[in-house]
Design a protein around this nucleic acid. Sequence first.
DNA 1: GACAATGTTACAGT
DNA 2: CACTGTAACATTGT
Length: 324
Amino acid sequence: MPELPEVETVRRGLEKYVVGHVIECVELRTTKQFTGNPKDIEGATIIAARRFGKGLVIDLSNNFSLAIHIKLTGQLIYRDANIRNQKGRVEVPNTYTHVIFWLDDLGHSERVRHIEKDSPRMGEEYPSISKDPSITLCFTQDDKRGHSALFYNDIRQFGWIKVVPTDTIGELPFFKGLGPEFSLGQDSGHTRMTEKLFGEILSKSKTAIKPLLMDQAKMAGVGNIYANDSLYVARIDPKRPANSLSDAEVKALYNAVLQVLKKGLEEGGASELTFVNILGELGNYQNHSQIYGKNGEKCKRDQTIIQKITLGGRGTYFCPNCQK
DNA sequence: GACAATGTTACAGT
DNA sequence: CACTGTAACATTGT
């Protein structure tokens, strides 16, 4: 899930389905990916979902937020209490469900009283649930049946979820280190990339253009799929030093990046690995990718065989004939 | 079994 | 300091 269009797809899903709910309790089935005190968010209402580059922030009514990065295989899936699993969607919970945010729900708005009875008071240490992942924090099986929930699944367990005060989000290393990001016009407010800024960043670096496109500290949002496709659309060799691009090439590449990100978002993201939207449904960009994953196939423009190399440690696909 | 997979981070080396 | 390569994180699929 990885790149801007995928994360934005999830953000929009959060906005549509999850904002407005109260987090009744947090169930940690695996604890290594979760930091902070779950008790800081239980009882709070979800008021907004923001995205910064490939990072997500879920804001709560009590001035705490959830900072989330799903890395390669994380999934955030919302399920209504009455429509838990459906054909064509990821079933939840499953083996890879590590965190469950149990939510209030229509017809089931009564809070579970024993949550409060057993919860530590402000300032008290949270019980060492981390030692025993089998402990359900606050809901009984019966409670769960009647409640909607937000599930966090992650096969590779590279992702993270952090409970932090809302005003300290910017201090987290990931968010602090983000460069200006490509904007699709309607996303939330991180510093925006402009063509001028893009040109300046490229002119200051002699590193290969593709790794630079993917360097989140220099510019946020582009990962391997969209970097490959952008360079193909702009007909630029991924190995070119960034500062060797002409003004026309810079402009073409900037527009190509915006174009492929927009297409990715329109298609609901690329489900190359495990990516699904908030409902657990696949995206469709993988069926529209320009060159990513197509080594050995023919270039659509000139029928040259597409090559795959490694650049900056990542698989890189390009047409050796029309990408100069 | 070897290798690669939408990402980030830490570290060693140039 | 800037940049590069590599390993690591954990698991699956080819």
